[in-house]
């Protein structure tokens, strides 16, 4: 029962490498991310679009998929909702710490790095497990529209368009064929919804898709906010 398994027990701790140099717990965390309902973020010339599928069961009210972080940033995650809630809350605190310290809104890369730092710490400490979520931060800063993906290992990637969660392979295939940076916000919004529909073999009703559009002017507006 406790004999050697295929991974030789190297998956029992998130702070131990396997002989091939893998941290297998973190890879399992990525699997948890892929089991969540799909989350998408796209950037275009006029701003960013986030979209996600709401998953509900029985008579539960759907919980929101897209979370505002600041006036100019929203985030969406896929994976364990409880883990994601903690990171969303942390992202809001980090964006307010930035405003408090510098009296100016945080940039998307800075925010993604802060959250990435936290996720990384949970792959290198004893007695903890990694967060079972991947997050997308989308917004506008002084460098223009930005989309960042933060994976459960703490790695951050700047993306043109990204899909994570259940059906991500199909969604990314659809985006490869249909996405360009020059799309207007209306076209991006339609593309986001179509991409979510493409990720599922079954029909998805409108009320199961949540979309947020952040136009580029949000950055100038955010500068004026308290």
């Amino acid at each position: 029962m406790f004999g050697p398994s295929q991974s030789m027990g190297y998956d029992r701790s998130s702070s131990i490498f396997s002989p091939e140099g893998r941290i297998i717990q973190t890879e399992y965390a990525r699997e948890a991310m892929k089991r969540g309902s799909i989350a998408i973020a796209l950037k275009g010339k006029d701003g960013v679009v986030l979209a996600g599928r709401l998953r509900t069961q029985d008579l539960d009210e759907p919980s929101p998929k897209i979370h505002p972080i600041d006036y100019h940033i929203s985030s969406i995650f896929s994976g364990y909702a409880a883990d994601g809630r903690i990171l969303t809350s942390r992202a809001r605190v980090e964006s307010q710490i930035h405003r408090f310290t510098y009296t100016s809104p945080i940039d998307i890369n800075g925010l993604a790095t802060k959250i990435g730092d936290l996720l990384q710490a949970y792959t290198q400490s004893g007695g903890v497990r990694p967060f079972g979520v991947g997050l997308l931060f989308a917004g506008i800063d002084s460098t223009g529209p930005q989309v960042y993906f933060v994976n459960p290992g703490g790695g951050i990637t700047s993306c043109k368009a990204k899909a994570i969660g259940d059906g991500e392979a199909e969604a990314i295939r659809y985006l490869r064929e249909n996405y360009t940076f020059d799309l207007t916000l209306e076209e991006l919004e339609k593309l986001a919804v179509d991409t979510i529909r493409s990720s599922s073999k079954t029909e998805i009703p409108d009320e199961e898709i949540e979309v947020t559009v952040l136009p580029s002017k949000r950055w100038e507006e955010s500068l004026k906010k308290l």
Binding site: I69, D70, R92, Q96, I97, R99, F100
Partner: peptide, 14 residues
């Protein structure tokens, strides 16, 4: 005042 504004905004978001 900076601290209050941050706390107020965090309350509103959460």
């Amino acid at each position: 005042i900076r601290l209050t504004r941050a706390e107020m905004r965090l309350f509103e978001l959460s």
